[in-house]
């Protein structure tokens, strides 16, 4: 059986990939994809912990399902906001969305 550490390492790598994407992408949708990676890293953690440490309790699975649901809602709201700004300035590059600063 694959040891728990491998899953945790996968989750950590995925989380760092997500952070990297968030910090380097300049496209709002690219950032959104990075955020989804971070959420899925947490999901892998939750399910792996639930499977290996507490196999009889389903809390971790339930938590992961809620995270997936929230991620969908977040993507819906986020894309709606991005569309509404695209309608006004025809750009979704976050470097150019800078009317307000300091």
């Amino acid at each position: 059986m694959i040891p728990l550490e491998w899953y945790l390492a996968l989750a950590a790598v995925l989380f760092c990939t997500g952070i990297f994407g968030v910090l380097t992408r300049r496209n709002a949708i690219g950032i959104l994809m990075g955020i989804e990676l971070m959420l899925n890293a947490a999901n892998i953690n939750l399910v792996a912990f639930a499977r290996y440490m507490h196999p009889t309790i389903l809390t971790g699975h339930i938590f992961a399902i809620f995270v997936i649901t929230i991620a969908a809602a977040e993507a819906a709201v986020g894309l709606a906001i991005i569309i509404s700004i695209y309608r006004n300035i025809e750009l979704i590059n976050v470097d150019k969305i800078n009317v307000m600063k300091w």
């Binding site: 959420l39 947490a42 953690n45 986020g78 906001i81 991005i82 700004i85 969305i97 009317v99």
Partner: peptide, 20 residues
Amino acid sequence: NEAAVKYFLYGSIASAVMIY
């Protein structure tokens, strides 16, 4: 619009870190 985009991006990153 810009307020919403910034709020959304910062907020989702913060909550993704929190869920981890």
